[in-house]
């Protein structure tokens, strides 16, 4: 069974139809790269998966469970939605760290808030908080920031901030981790450290969707590549297929426009 199945997602903003029927499936441990020119709907697609936008039509299934169905009103309960979000994680282009918390608390906050809802939280408080802290510390060293645990976001470089954001997104163990152009707000010399972290997640069997303009990275890391144009999937296939032998005229045009830069 696929870990993620997206069926026929449509989304309009006013008269602007941004997604015009997008569907794909992913297997566990796969890395999917989504490429395409600006305005083609990549961000909107990730936002739909994370329930930050509500699609007008379509379905989203995780492990065969229907998480979202535009036809079924009963599925849109706010409370349920919150739990469903936890299947997905999202790393934003602009990091969006919490400025008033240090690195450790940025990573541990969501775990703490969730733990407080556990029935045994009161009786096992110390133990649970201890577990959360060690998990947060482990995630922070995994992204290579063990020496920055007590720093505040403004004291970090963009690349370091984005790595904290990745640790924060991993904290709740999402089944599918989405990245929206994780390096495009960074200076070129900082993109490498972030891409390295993402690459390391691949070897630990995370399922990931990465929207990116880093074609080298997509080619080397992605198992599957989707090229989007005008709210539709114009072409999809393995990295070798899409990069090595693009079938669509638009895909070829996109690649040549990149190499002209």
């Amino acid at each position: 069974m696929p870990i993620l199945e997206v069926r026929n997602i449509r989304k309009s903003f006013g008269n602007n139809e941004v997604l015009r029927g997008v569907g794909f499936t992913m297997e566990k441990g796969e890395v999917l790269a989504i490429i395409g020119s600006s305005g083609s709907g990549k961000t909107t697609l990730l936002r739909c998966l994370n329930f930050l936008e509500r699609p007008d039509a379509g379905q989203i299934l995780v492990n065969g469970e229907m998480l979202f169905d535009a036809e079924d009103e009963s599925i849109h309960n706010e409370k349920e939605l919150r739990k469903k979000r936890l299947h997905f994680g999202l790393v934003f282009q602009s990091f969006n760290l919490f400025p008033q918390y240090n690195v450790l608390r940025n990573v541990s906050l969501a775990m703490e808030l969730l733990a407080k809802e556990r029935p045994d939280f009161k009786s096992r408080r110390r133990e649970i908080m201890g577990e959360i802290e060690s998990r947060a510390l482990a995630l922070i060293s995994r992204v290579g920031l063990a020496d920055k645990v007590n720093s505040y976001p403004y004291q970090l470089s963009g690349g370091q901030q984005q790595r904290v954001a990745i640790a924060r997104a991993l904290a709740l163990s999402p089944e599918i981790l989405c990245f929206d152009e994780p390096t495009s707000a960074l200076d070129p010399e900082l993109t490498g450290e972030v891409l390295k972290v993402i690459r390391s997640l691949k070897s630990s069997d995370s399922t990931m969707i990465v929207v990116t303009h880093e074609m080298e990275f997509a080619r080397n890391v992605a198992d599957k590549v989707i090229f989007m144009a005008d709210g539709l999937i114009e072409e999809e296939g393995t990295a070798e297929e899409v990069f090595g032998n693009p079938k669509s005229e638009r895909t070829r045009a996109f690649f040549s426009s990149l190499s002209e830069r």
């Binding site: 994370n50 329930f51 930050l52 919150r82 739990k83 979000r85 936890l86 997905f88 994680g89 999202l90 934003f92 602009s94 969006n96 760290l97 919490f98 906050l109 969501a110 808030l113 969730l114 924060r168 997104a169 904290a171 709740l172």
Partner: peptide, 14 residues
Amino acid sequence: AVGQYEAGQVLGMT
């Protein structure tokens, strides 16, 4: 910034 609210939302906060 809306990003602060959205970061909280995707982390399952109420």
